[in-house]
Design a protein around this nucleic acid. Structure first.
Length: 483
RNA sequence: GUCCCCAUCGUCUAGUCUGGCCCAGGACACCGGCCCUUCAAGCCGGCGACGCGGGUUCAAAUCCCGCUGGGGACGCCA
């Protein structure tokens, strides 16, 4: 395709948060547009008046921004093919429906949702396919007018022509449907608002969308949409159905599998770069070897021909790993800023503490940080004043008869130091060990427990420096006195 | 029930179009080792898959058919 000709869109319905599945679809559209130098449009499909809310719209926009998926046309940005809210485009749906009605490709239906529901249930119970029986199409004009007077204007239904529809899907070759499987779908509801299949066609045509990239749960909608394009005399766009994202049990990803909304991941400390990288790899692969892609790399390498067709199970562990990778790439200042935010929300910020205390702490935690909130666990020893001893750790100290003397010796050693820097503490304690004729570890291990309450911690000399002479000595003496 | 889609390690996948270079490669997880003051990280190594059955062919993960399994759709939801 020629450069600049690509126009794609992401069209969420504002009925909740941006789901990772939706985010992945948005990302692929965005990447495709950016890769081909095309246009990425955001369109809000708010035709369901019951469920659409302005809050959901705001949440989706904010999640999109957080992921860095900027749109060329859409809400707040505007653009030549607006408005970008379907609720504001009623006139064009009415116009299109009017044309179909006039041409005899559509008809008015006065069946109520309750009647339809009852018939559907009955068909299903019979083991038949639930389809609209077309009864309103067969209504004689006189009868039609009588029912209309009684029930109002009714809905507009498409008269499904006989035949079959097929298309060459970008990601999965030719897909074919017999029209026998497609019934007379509703185009316009009785409130005048369009249904999804109709609105999508009218808008995609008006916005000159060239490629519809969406989840493969839309495959069965595609023939209906193609029929509408045909009846309207419009050339349909190309369709690319990407595999769905499943939960660990293989069913559609939902809340019971854990976090599913983009903002939930954000709140759990995942970085947008990691999220984007991870999502891109769900259903797409470059060469099967490279796993880490920054945004520019993704834009350069992404294309639809490398999108697979099998559904992908959302692997939380791999996301965690990837997040840790991206976190490590951040500068110390950036990591400190993220960690400090966690410390503050946890209410563990220490008053009158120099900023360098936190950056030293984060620096010492180093690659143990998989999420910003990990600062709370790895930094607990410094952020809290009381030491909580893990039973096994304390037992280890107790089992060493010389532990009391050793802790006291370490305390004294630190006390004599003019300043407890990690380097100074290290040389002093190693010298002390040599002097006492023990291995450094024999001083270090009990000290770790005394200082942190645990057998696993940051580097022990970092711990000493971060705690500072006073707190460190007090903890060592405190532990010794308990022996 | 009907229609549609999909099928390689536990998971994400490369390889399938253009059959041989694949006794199947990479990553996450897991296990072991090294490093080391512990943990983590890193490095090294290990475990681990072509769903089943028929074809076609000198040769099939790759092509064809059937089966099985999983998923999706069948709304005046999107």
């Amino acid at each position: 395709m020629s450069a600049g000709s690509v126009r794609v869109r992401f069209a969420p319905s504002p009925t909740g948060h941006l789901h990772v599945g939706g985010a992945r679809t948005a990302l692929m559209n965005w990447l495709f547009a950016r890769h081909h130098g095309g246009v990425f449009i955001l369109r809000i499909e708010d035709t369901d008046r019951e469920r659409s809310t302005p809050e959901a719209t705001a949440a989706i926009l904010s999640a999109m921004r957080w992921l860095g998926l900027d749109w060329d046309e859409g809400p707040q940005t505007g653009g030549p093919s607006g408005p970008y809210f379907q609720s504001e485009r009623r006139a064009s749906y009415a116009e299109a429906a009017g044309r179909l009605l006039a041409a005899g490709h559509a008809y008015r239906c006065y069946c109520t949702p309750e009647e339809l529901e009852a018939r559907r249930g009955e068909q299903l119970a019979r083991g038949a396919s639930p389809r609209y029986d077309g009864r309103c199409f067969e209504l004689p004009e006189s009868e039609r007018l009588r029912v209309a007077a009684e029930r109002g204007p009714g809905a507009v239904r498409l008269r499904m022509p006989p035949g079959e529809t097929s298309w060459d899907d970008v990601t999965r070759d030719t897909v074919r449907f017999s029209h026998d499987e497609l019934d007379d779908i509703v185009l316009l509801r009785s409130d005048g608002l369009p249904t999804y299949n109709f609105a999508a066609v009218v808008d995609d045509a008006a916005m000159r969308i060239t490629h519809v990239i969406r989840g493969d749960d839309h495959i069965s909608n595609t023939p209906r949409q193609i029929v509408i394009y045909g009846l309207l005399g419009i050339e349909p766009p190309r369709f690319a159905h990407v595999p769905m994202i499943l939960g660990p049990d293989g069913s559609r990803l939902s809340k019971r599998h854990g976090a599913t909304s983009v903002e939930a991941f954000r709140d759990e400390g995942f970085l947008p770069e990691a999220m984007v990288n991870f999502l891109a790899l769900l259903g797409w692969a470059y060469d099967g070897k490279q796993e880490l892609f920054d945004r520019e790399d993704l834009v350069a390498k992404f294309d639809l021909d490398r999108v697979g067709k099998n559904p992908a199970i959302f692997n939380y562990e791999k996301l965690e790993w990837m997040n840790a990778v991206y976190l490590r790439r951040l500068s110390l200042d950036e990591r400190t800023r993220l960690a400090l935010a966690e410390i503050e929300t946890a209410g563990l910020a220490r008053p009158a503490t120099a900023p360098v205390f936190y950056s030293r702490l984060v620096e010492a935690i180093g690659e143990r940080l998989r999420r910003p909130s990990d600062v709370l666990v790895h930094g607990a020893f410094a952020l809290r004043d009381e030491v909580t001893f893990e039973p096994e750790a304390w037992a280890m100290v107790v089992s060493e008869p010389k532990a009391r003397d050793r802790l006291s010796a370490v305390a004294e050693c630190l006390e004599r130091l003019p300043e407890v820097s990690a380097a100074a503490a290290e040389s002093a304690i190693r010298a002390l060990a040599a002097e006492m004729g023990v291995k450094a570890g024999e001083l270090i291990h009990p000290s770790r427990v005394a200082l942190t309450g645990s057998r696993a911690s940051l580097g022990i000399f970092d711990v000493m420096e971060i705690l500072g002479k006073e707190r460190a000595v007090a903890r060592l003496r405190g532990a010794a006195s308990r022996l």
